[in-house]
Design a protein around this nucleic acid. Structure first.
Lengths: 176, 176
DNA sequence: TGAATTATTGAACGATTTGTCAAGAACAGG
DNA sequence: CCTGTTCTTGACAAATCGTTCAATAATTCA
């Protein structure tokens, strides 16, 4: 998973995958079919291990606003980490967007699930009076998604921690 | 330029470049050196033709707030266009981020120039009382950059015009 | 016009790509 | 212990990658 995450789909060769997994070639192809199918599994794995915990955190009972704040803090610690490779889903969008509609749809669905979780948390925070009452939950959820994806892209080249903090600060301001 | 923009660096072969430019192979290599050098030229060209006009628009005299609004409208029309391929710079970040620091620095500089233009416009709008007086120009500029890059990524798979409009609406709200 | 330089063309290069084949190792059940 | 199945290993095949070579065409300049 980390190979695809770090280097992207095309730049990762099957020989790299062999070294990373320890499996031989025939085992890889026997188990997954081909490279593309393996990548699909990796996307699912990435969603389960990275995005889904965030979604569950947003849906966790208690203060939705506090949940959102925790997600923002998660953005900070990951994007400031010395080895940050953005979001596997977002990284893959440009790579498949022009030539693989099915893959694009898979990626799109993952982003939609994240957007939905943001929207639910915002709606819940709104009802609890934890965020601005005039806030458009749907539009804000979409913007938080875009902000996160943009942060994932820009923070890969701009390594200043202050950059990440500026963006996260704005994310917080969006709720008030 | 459009080939790299649409398909990315690795996915674009030199045979594609021949067909796109009409030039023969030796001519391409004689004129640019190699594929990577050609891509560097393409990035410069993209900056001149796409990003720089936006920067100049932000720096244009008159109402800075109006200039910002015009940029937001530009986001809308481009991201909603039937053939939208995101931002060449942002698309390239994941592709080079893990293996080509020099290229990453080039991409980083392009994003910084955009961020700087946002910051100047925001500062100017602040002095003119066209935006919230408590606004942190630097942080907001960084966030507008991230929002734009995120929009460029997500809007490639989520083709609903309402998505783009939601994000742009939030960008406007960030100024108040 | 003639000679020298530049530009273009098609073929070929070596390296690397994904995917497959076939032989051998480990293991299962009877 | 022997046979049949599964798994692993390395080599191989076909295609494509970026790049270069060699020959031809075009152009420039005296």
């Amino acid at each position: 998973m980390f190979l695809f995450w770090k280097k992207g789909y095309e730049a990762t060769g099957v020989v790299d995958l062999e070294h990373a997994t320890g499996l031989g070639r025939q085992s890889l192809y026997g188990a997954f079919g081909d490279k593309r199918a393996l990548f699909l599994r990796v996307v699912e794995r990435y969603f389960e291990q990275v995005l889904k915990p965030g979604i569950e955190l947003l849906d966790a009972p208690g203060s939705a606003r506090a949940n959102l704040e925790q997600v923002f803090r998660y953005w900070e610690v990951t994007a400031e980490a010395p080895e940050f490779h953005g979001c596997l889903v977002g990284n893959s969008v440009p790579e498949f967007g022009a030539k693989d509609r099915e893959m694009s749809d898979v990626l799109k669905r993952k982003l939609e699930l994240l957007e939905g979780a943001f929207a639910r948390a915002l709606q819940r925070a709104k009802r609890a009076g934890e965020v601005n009452a005039n806030l458009d939950a749907r539009a804000t959820a979409r913007s938080l998604l875009a902000l996160a994806q943009g942060l994932a892209v820009v923070a890969r080249v701009n390594r200043e921690p202050s950059f990440v903090r500026s963006v996260v600060q704005t994310a917080r301001r969006m709720l008030d």
